[in-house]
């Protein structure tokens, strides 16, 4: 089609906005460092099986317990003699996978509810927002604990618990965005052209609210990584012996005085991951902000 169109003097250059955002993103040093860090972390997690065998992370070897870092065990071994390096490399997989999946699910559920509440307003809005108030009046941690206790600790239930704890943010965020955007003339222009509500939300409102949603999603990933570590620390995460960063911290607590490396390495892993995601989020926020367009 492009060729036909070019003959009539029409051109398409759809990517220009993405390119423009990338150009501004690159300008921020922090964001680029964050991106590089995250890519390295993700690569390590992706190829974890080639870097350290999963058995080293789970197989107990009490003869080797609580060793400090050495060539054989880069990050030392824990109280069951398991290799800390292998546990970190494999543990991150679950942590990050849960963080990403629960962010996506809470984002989708929250955005949809927020868009509906904001666009239609009135009774629908009241019902959604009041039920949300009830949700939000229970502390997150209490709420997740209740869910995990009731359903039992496993991957899916953890996902459900985290989604329920975080989707409320998106409802509020997207609703306020939609309320602002629905006021704009171009939404009215679409209605004047006969567009249906579904079309207006999908093709005019959500794409314009996307910038804010994306930035919040990235920042949320790091929040959930930390939150999930907290849960594991409290013994509400993945059941042992599956390696998991928060769980490792919790187990290391007893040996804090004698073997501080048990605490140090998983803590570093959490900090670095959260930090890189935050840096990217900040960079994206600047890159997507139309007011900074030069």
């Amino acid at each position: 089609m492009d060729n036909v169109m070019r003959n009539s003097g029409i051109s398409f250059k759809k990517q220009s906005q993405t390119k423009e955002i990338w150009r501004r993103f690159k300008k921020s040093k922090g964001a680029v460092i964050g991106l590089v860090m995250l890519v390295i972390i993700l690569m390590i997690l992706l190829f974890a099986d080639f870097i350290a065998p999963y058995t080293a992370a789970t197989k107990q070897n009490l003869a080797n317990k609580l060793q400090g870092p050495s060539l054989a065990h880069l990050f030392g071994t824990d109280s069951y003699g398991r290799d800390v390096f292998a546990r970190i490399v494999h543990g991150g997989r679950t942590s990050i996978l849960i963080a990403i999946l629960s962010t996506i699910s809470s984002c989708i559920i929250g955005s949809a509810l927020g868009a509906i509440a904001g666009y239609f307003g009135g009774k629908i809005d009241s019902i959604i927002m009041r039920s949300l108030d009830i949700f939000m009046s229970v502390p997150d941690i209490l709420f997740t604990m209740a869910v995990v206790f009731a359903l039992g600790a496993n991957f899916v239930n953890l996902l459900v618990a985290l989604t329920l704890a975080y989707f409320t943010n998106y409802v509020r965020l997207v609703r306020s965005q939609v309320l602002n955007l629905a006021e704009l003339d171009y939404v009215e222009a679409a209605r004047a052209g006969g567009a249906s509500s579904a079309r207006i939300i999908a093709s005019h409102i959500l794409p314009n609210a996307m910038g804010v949603i994306i930035v919040n999603t990235t920042l949320n990933v790091s929040k959930i990584i930390l939150y999930e570590s907290t849960l594991s620390f409290l013994g509400l995460g993945m059941p042992p012996p599956a390696p998991e960063w928060g769980l490792m911290l919790s187990e290391a607590r007893e040996f804090m005085r004698t073997s501080p490396h048990l605490l140090f390495f998983p803590a570093m892993a959490i900090v670095l991951t959260a930090c890189s995601v935050n840096l990217i989020g900040d960079g994206l926020r600047d890159a997507l902000d139309p007011h900074l367009k030069s």
């Binding site: 906005q17 704009l184 003339d185 171009y186 009215e188 222009a189 005019h204 314009n208 139309p290």
Partner: peptide
């Protein structure tokens, strides 16, 4: 036809 040529057109 709208008054404000800035807000009546989808920027994306």
């Amino acid at each position: 036809i709208f008054q404000d040529p800035y807000s009546s057109i989808d920027p994306r």
